[in-house]
């Protein structure tokens, strides 16, 4: 349990970032130190409420004495570390990770991607024409693949999975960051409905035998949607509005309120457009839910829209 204040004072650790001293509490990551030093570090699989999986490798930094680059999101600081965040090697690595993702995944709804692509001069188009939708990504033959002639760049492209009224899985946008798996598993929800299936480039977030969500262990808490960094998982309401071309974040307001369903006190962020709730998120820094909700708090807002017309009794 978290004590209200630490019993022993936390030691500060000083490391050098790009030549300048930065002090952060012991146990912090290099990323925390980078943030403290004002270095803007791109991250994708990092989540503020999850243990970093360090799978995306976009936050890599150069660490003096290390043969390879290190993931800043998960490497803990130790005294005397010398970290470089903008060397040729770091820039190359970040550029290539962005290119490799951009050439294989639909990043159109991933925040900040255009900015990073520009910053690192990434050109995801140079890997060739992207492959079209695959209908066989849920069939797993680990250790085998069809190679083709090299002129078409393999992608994650596949049909959207719409098997329920609450949220949609568009795995063409999936970067396999494991955040939904971790949120569904031991880190938060303990439902264990989804995992990575398959191996290598053919990996895919999946239920057992790709069963539809209503047939799986999914409890529709939507905590996977909450942590998805690319929009691969989205509210059905958002998905439909995007498809209709009516989704407009500039026209949305966000209101924090307390969920009314039970006495726990989870906070809700209601995203409202045109006087309608279009999705519900939850503040990650709230001490009760840490961004997590249940099906009622997350999706149980439709009744709010059943307003009686002005002047009518019912």
């Amino acid at each position: 349990m978290n004590a209200p204040y630490p019993v022993t004072p936390v030691q500060q650790v000083t490391i050098k970032i790009d030549g300048e001293d930065v002090s952060v509490p012991e146990g912090s990551t290099i990323l925390t130190a980078c943030n403290a030093a004002g270095k803007d570090t791109p991250t994708l699989c990092y989540g503020d409420t999850l243990t970093p999986k360090n799978a995306c490798r976009v936050c890599m930094v150069e660490l003096k004495g290390s043969r390879v680059l290190v993931p800043s999101c998960s490497r803990k600081v130790s005294p005397g570390m010398e970290v470089m965040t903008d060397t040729e090697r770091v820039r190359h690595s970040r550029r290539l990770v962005l290119e490799l993702l951009g050439s294989s995944v639909d990043l159109s709804t991933t925040p900040r991607i255009p900015e990073w692509m520009q910053r690192y001069d990434a050109d995801p188009d140079r890997y060739g024409e992207r492959s079209g939708e695959s209908l066989t990504r849920d069939i797993h033959e680990p250790g085998e693949h069809h190679a083709g002639n090299g002129y078409v760049a393999a992608t994650m492209s596949q049909p959207d999975k719409i098997d329920n009224d609450l949220y949609v899985r568009d795995y063409s946008k999936c970067i396999l960051c494991y955040k939904c798996v971790d949120a569904c598993g031991t880190q938060w929800q303990n439902s264990f409905a989804i995992q990575i299936a398959g191996r290598g480039f053919d990996s895919q977030i999946s239920t057992e035998y790709a069963a539809e969500l209503p047939d799986s262990a999914c409890v529709f808490c939507g905590n996977c949607v909450e942590v998805c960094p690319t929009g691969a998982l989205s509210f059905k309401s958002e998905y439909d509005m995007r498809a209709a071309g009516t989704w407009d974040e500039s026209q949305q307001t966000e209101t924090t309120t307390v969920c009314t369903y039970c006495g726990v006190g989870c906070n809700l962020n209601l995203h409202v457009q045109d006087n309608k709730i279009v999705k519900v998120t939850s503040p990650h820094d709230h001490s009760i839910g840490h961004g997590n909700l249940c099906i009622k708090g997350r999706f149980g807002f439709v009744h709010v829209h059943s307003r009686s017309k002005e002047g009518s009794d019912s």
Partner: peptide
């Protein structure tokens, strides 16, 4: 074929290398 698929450089890089 043998990449586990966990990290981007290897998961996608080995594909682009073969292509």
């Amino acid at each position: 074929d043998e990449s586990c698929g966990q990290c981007v450089p290897c998961r996608v890089g080995t594909v682009r290398q073969e292509e």
